[in-house]
């Protein structure tokens, strides 16, 4: 069963310089208990996609279906019960916790918003803190007393406070040290197993995304260029952008690092104010053909549930 279905989702921002095409026709679905990884470079629209799904941004077009219900046109008020089931974890554990609230109050706040009976608050909060590897003594302390990894645990406890089914993880480990990243990733995996959670995992750390995701979607300039099962995508990337992206991941092994060949990308990512016509990757593509400027490629199944938006692979 699909927890989430996104059809041709669009989010444009009107600015004084023109219309920014941040998300430009994105479609995917996520089934229950699955983790879909969403990767791409800065400015590709992956964060905007996440925020539009939970309707922090009003979608410009397309459809968002959550648990079989179309939430695209819902008002903020109608969204309230939906958000109880759909929560978010943010990148920056420093900026996403209110410095003047105690850890306990931070975790209880969503319970107040979603009208969970007051007598349950404290017990639930303590259970949540234990669940994420903190303890009841931490409840009266303030965010500045915690390290980055511990703060991210608080952010996760807060997201879990209203027993959601689906969590959008927006770069949840990028701000953490390597040795702490593994702690948080393991915890997210345990929680998923125990609580049957579904994740949209947005990140630019391609090796961590591969580790945590069942399927991975690659975005470039507001569009998905390739989507496949995680090991399939990494072993057998088809789209020229994915190939170049994956070849650039630093390998923590000197001999393998010396052997591999990086497929360099020429030039810079074009402005989303004025994206290239036809295939958006055509301006930097190593296998560019003159048709690419005219034909808009569509995401096609090339076998094995491997989708690729390039007709020349």
């Amino acid at each position: 069963m699909n927890v989430l279905e996104i059809n041709n989702l669009k989010k444009y921002f009107e600015t004084s310089a023109g219309v920014v095409h941040s998300v430009d026709g994105v479609s995917f679905n996520i089934s229950k208990g699955e983790t879909l990884g969403l990767v791409g470079e800065s400015g590709c629209g992956k964060t905007t996609t996440g925020r539009t799904i939970i309707k922090l941004y009003e979608p410009t077009g397309g459809q968002i279906i959550f648990n079989g219900v179309d939430i695209t046109g819902m008002t903020q008020k109608e969204m309230l019960p939906v958000r109880k089931k759909m929560q978010m974890i943010f990148q920056d554990p420093y900026a996403s916790l209110n410095p003047r609230m105690t850890i306990g109050d931070i975790v209880i706040e969503p319970m107040i918003i979603h009208k969970i009976p007051k007598e349950q608050h404290r017990d639930r909060m303590i259970n949540l803190l234990r669940r994420v590897g903190l303890n009841s003594e931490h409840a009266n302390r303030y965010p500045h007393e915690f390290s980055g990894g511990q703060r991210q645990r608080v952010g996760i406890a807060r997201a879990l406070a209203v027993e959601p089914e689906f969590i959008i993880c927006d770069e949840p480990i990028s701000a953490l040290d390597v040795s702490i990243q593994a702690q948080v990733v393991n915890m997210l995996e345990d929680l998923q197993k125990d609580l049957g959670l579904t994740y949209l995992f947005i990140a630019h750390d391609l090796s961590m995304v591969r580790h945590i995701s069942s399927r991975v979607a690659v975005m470039y300039l507001g569009e998905i260029v390739e989507l496949a099962e995680s090991s399939e995508l990494y072993k057998n990337p088809k789209h020229p952008y994915t190939r170049s992206l994956l070849s650039s991941i630093p390998i923590p092994d000197p001999d393998k690092s010396d052997e591999r060949k990086i497929i360099p990308l020429s030039g810079e990512i074009p402005s989303p104010l004025n994206p290239p016509k036809g295939c958006k990757f055509s301006t930097r593509c190593p296998i560019f053909k003159s048709d690419c400027k005219n034909i808009k490629p569509v995401l096609k199944n090339i076998g094995n549930e491997h989708f690729c938006a390039c007709p020349f692979v």
Partner: peptide
């Protein structure tokens, strides 16, 4: 604590506690 690029079966990460 970093994922092994050759490990397809997604073994659990081993963090530094």
């Amino acid at each position: 604590s970093v994922p092994d690029p050759d490990n397809i079966n997604n073994a659990r990460l081993i963090p530094i506690e």
